[in-house]
Design a protein around this nucleic acid. Structure first.
Lengths: 227, 227
DNA sequence: AACGAGTGTTAACTAGTGTTAAGCGATTGG
DNA sequence: CCAATCGCTTAACACTAGTTAACACTCGTT
């Protein structure tokens, strides 16, 4: 059993807010209910929830404005907007950028729960893929950059970055050849294996500034990144 | 306390105009009263009010004509029309699209004030929803403008704006080439793909003031906007 | 109708990326 | 110790993407 996820729910209509809160609680979420944008903001600051469900039309501070403020402090937290039917499609769609979603009222509780799970999964994936330290290097996987100490960051190619990412994820363990080949190339035939050799060679070259790092070969099995 | 909102009131009947003006002023609005369409237009140009209350029947220039002219310069400003009972229903309703509302004479001052507040809330919500943050840039999709910090906003073309919008909507994720091509160009043939390359190039140029932003290529798949 | 500004497409050239090939080096089991 | 296999490295190649400029088209103005 995982520990419950805390959701901040801002909804000014008391009856609806209570129904949503209770439904989510039966799904083992921890729900903080606020009835306007201002208390929602202070609750956010205090409790640091993992996800926000915000009604767009609220007294004192509307959902979009609130979202903007919170986004200046955390631009990865997933947000679901609850919108009245009067809201035009494209205005709302414009706000679905980057970890946002929206739901038109009236909606079914099932829909809401599905979207909550989607967003949580997506951000979990993203979090594992941030900046990684690798000896004297800083490896930023999303940006595909590799920086030696404070020197200028070197741009890696897509293949290089993914290969390094997998090696790093399994650092100090043997990483199976065919496993990577299947994951990055789709299959582990002879030619792809040769191609991978080339990339291992390239990575070694790019990592040799830090002599404590080594990609060593385990004949017949795969590679091991020592660090 | 917020700073007062400026309302342009165009009403040719002096007594009525004065009553409305005074009522609104007690509600802390700043009211500019004009008694015909032409002076209303020049006052609009000079003062840039946030909301318009226009009598439909006015000497020199009627309210609808005036609204049309103003809408060519600002198509989001909320407008409330004051109509005589002689006005047919559908003519008036046709004009309520897009941030407009209307009120049949005679009306109560309360009604007017409620509608003013509604429209102002609605446009406030829209405005915050429409401006998107992108690193140090502010991207306004409907206006197709891109502003670096507090510098003057740069006008984007239609293609540039749409492409950037989709990249932003899928920020930090790979956005499939053929998906964008089908969405923006209609199909993903060779020539459109070359055309898209050109726009990616243009966007990179326009975004390079903020070095934390990058449009990186994922060979064979598409692009990823890092921010 | 002619013009010009602005926008998007096509074309030509350049740069970058990943795959294939080939030769050499290392490791291991017989 | 030698042969077979596996891995390493470099370079050539094919393909994808990037950049710039020329061209074509649209639209509003004169």
């Amino acid at each position: 059993m995982h520990k419950p996820i805390t959701i901040l729910l801002a909804e000014d209509e008391p009856a609806l807010g209570q129904i949503i809160k209770e439904s989510l609680e039966t799904r083992n979420f921890n729900v903080l209910l606020c009835d306007n944008g201002e208390t929602a903001y202070s609750t956010y600051k205090k409790e640091q929830p993992e996800l926000l469900v915000l009604d767009v039309m609220m007294p004192k501070k509307d959902g979009f404005t609130l979202a903007k403020e919170i986004r200046t402090e955390d631009d990865t937290i997933p947000i679901i907007f609850l919108t009245a039917k009067s809201q035009t499609q494209d205005v709302v769609e414009g706000f679905t950028i980057g970890g946002n979603d929206y739901l038109k009222k009236p909606f079914s509780m099932e829909e809401l729960i599905v979207r909550i799970h989607n967003l949580i999964d997506r951000t979990k994936v993203q979090k594992t893929a941030e900046t990684l330290r690798l000896g004297d290097f800083t490896f930023h996987f999303p940006k595909q950059t590799l920086q030696y100490k404070t020197e200028a960051a070197v741009q890696l190619t897509h293949r290089e970055a993914h290969l390094l990412f997998h090696l790093l994820k399994n650092k100090n363990q043997v990483l199976d050849r065919s496993l990577i080949l299947n994951k990055l190339w789709g299959n582990d035939d002879f030619f792809n294996a040769r191609s991978m050799d080339v990339f291992i060679s390239k990575l070694r070259k790019k990592l040799k500034q830090d002599t404590t790092l080594q990609i060593i070969n385990v004949r017949g099995f795969g590679y091991k990144l020592i660090c």
